[in-house]
Design a protein around this nucleic acid. Structure first.
Length: 479
RNA sequence: GGUCCCGUAGCCAAGUGGUUAGGCAACGGAUUGCAAAUCCGUCUACCCCAGUUCGAUUCUGGGCGGGACCUCCA
């Protein structure tokens, strides 16, 4: 089944047709490492992760690159007095820009791991690609599409007729907006920086291009350089948050295509920003949750992941703590069903003779169809839950249980929000004292001392475990 | 001001020109010593007004309401 994805450039659903059959190259605009990653960041990164997982599921070999921006991302991009995010954080904390970058890059990787992200094949830092950026700048200067003023290098928008094709922005509208760049150096307010000089800037390099001055790179150029380095001049998919569309991606297109003369990206995809309690989440409003904040509240990475991917990436997602509670319950429903199947498969419960071949095929089909239609995760989840219902009411055979488990394993492989296949019985993992309590309860039940049995159950629950009474006996499971 | 998105049952959220989405919660019942889990059942909706149509939640137009981007942001 063809994978259809929404291309921001054409504003339509397009079939994924990779440049090289069977192989898909993806580039994702990654974090700017100047503060702790928040849940909004991860809605975008998790979207990229699910995209990669599904494309792989469909048999493609994927190469995925996500950059780490550790220099050049200006707080007011085009304004002369603009300050690099890293520098601003440095000023605030007293740490060096390099320390800031390292700290938050580590934290970012930690969050990726906690949210069960399949790591991109390459996660390069902008500061490691100064030379590559330089050669592009050099070429753009040679071609006359960039110009230098007082050591600053700007890309000249007028030399690239396609500027604005992604975001639909035209000059007049921009000038009417709030964003009016005051910069006499530029020929056009929309011209953007490829290289900046600033003697006060901590991160500085000798110009990596001919005839330049010591300075640091503009924000946009890093993505062009790293994308090209790892994936070549043309890539299949490029993703980012919706805010990246303009100016970042617009600028990427201009500089990259001016440099290579080829179409840069096949399909541009942008994740909608999430809302928190029905209102915009942003740093300036201060109403944001970091990933660490959520985990500190006792939610697991899996629950957060579920909560952030359950709505299709182009829909507004209203993030609430209540939503995470729902995620917890939903995950548990899936895992309970899987555990039951594991028990059948391992002969711990008496298997029946009903088969699930048709149900498995249907679930897989619906799941694939939903995901193929622009990653409709909500609909894919519906297919999973339909399947859960079927499994729960089926006296499944051993072979059937294994088949059903394979289907769940596939859904987990793509979505990654349910967790590993549950063990048939977690009793063995429980602390010895709880096992003792469980034995005591068995005895109490036998003696029909219900008060004692219930109090033992409460004690076990207080320790974070629950008793599951099955026909084959009682066992413990983690709450 | 410009561009764009959305308005679905208690909540979250898919989808469709005429046949039960799904999750969570709630309420009955089965099961259980009582529970938990599970199963069965109940609650069955599409902002408003016109239009197109045999028929619209689903297409068209208008209205109202909410939100996003254009400005640091994923």
């Amino acid at each position: 089944m063809p994978i259809r994805l929404h291309n921001s450039l054409s504003r339509t659903l397009e079939e994924l047709r990779p440049l090289v059959p069977g192989k898909v190259t993806m580039y994702h605009c990654g974090p700017t490492v100047y503060s702790s990653p928040h849940i909004g960041n991860f809605r975008s990164f998790l979207f990229a992760d699910v995209l990669r997982r599904f494309v792989e599921d469909q048999g493609y070999q994927v190469v995925q690159v996500m950059n780490v921006t550790d220099v050049g991302h200006l707080t007011q991009d085009d304004i002369e007095s603009g300050e690099d995010k890293m520098e601003a954080a440095s000023k605030k904390t007293g740490k060096t820009a390099w320390q800031i970058a390292k700290q938050y890059e580590d934290e970012f990787h930690d969050c990726q791991q906690k949210l069960h992200v399949r790591l991109p094949h390459h996660m390069p830092r902008a500061t490691d690609f100064i030379a590559q950026m330089g050669s592009i700048i050099d070429d753009l200067l040679q071609k006359g599409v960039a110009y230098q003023q007082n050591g600053n290098v700007y890309f000249e928008i007028a030399k690239f007729p396609g500027y604005g094709k992604l975001s639909g922005k035209v000059l007049d509208e921009l000038e009417d907006g709030a964003r009016i760049a005051v910069n006499d150096e530029k020929k056009d307010p929309r011209d953007f920086a490829l290289w900046k000089t600033d003697s006060k800037h901590q991160m500085q390099w000798d110009a990596p291009f001919r005839g330049g001055a010591r300075g640091f790179p503009g924000w946009h150029i890093e993505c062009s350089a790293m994308s090209m380095h790892y994936l070549g001049p043309q890539i299949d998919i490029h993703t980012g948050g919706e805010d990246n569309m303009f100016p970042h991606h617009e600028c990427e297109i201009a500089q990259t295509e001016a440099h290579t003369g080829k179409q840069f990206v096949g399909i541009w995809m942008h994740a909608r920003h999430l809302l928190v309690d029905n209102t915009k989440m942003s740093k300036s409003l201060g109403n944001f949750f970091t990933v660490a904040d959520i985990l500190a509240k006792g939610y697991t990475g899996l629950e957060l992941r579920y909560g952030l991917i359950r709505v299709q990436y182009r829909q507004a997602l209203n993030f609430t703590l209540k939503g995470l509670d729902e995620a917890r319950a939903a995950i548990s429903r899936v895992q309970s069903a899987r555990q039951r199947l594991v028990r059948f498969a391992q002969g711990l419960e008496r298997a029946g003779s009903e088969d699930v071949v048709a149900a498995v095929a249907k679930a897989n089909e619906q799941f694939t169809a939903a995901m193929s239609e622009d990653l409709n995760v909500s609909e894919a989840l519906a297919a999973v839950f339909d399947f859960v219902g079927v499994c729960n009411k089926t006296e499944v055979s051993v072979a059937g249980a294994k088949l059903a488990l394979a289907a769940f394993a596939r859904f987990e492989d793509v979505l990654g929000c349910f967790g590993d296949e549950p063990k048939a019985d977690a009793t063995g993992d429980a602390p010895a004292e709880l096992l003792a309590l469980l034995e005591q309860r068995k005895a109490a039940k036998k003696a029909k001392d219900w008060a004692l049995a219930d109090s033992l159950r409460d004690q076990i629950a207080a320790a974070g475990w629950k008793i599951v009474d099955a026909a084959t006996g009682a066992r413990l499971e983690k709450l």
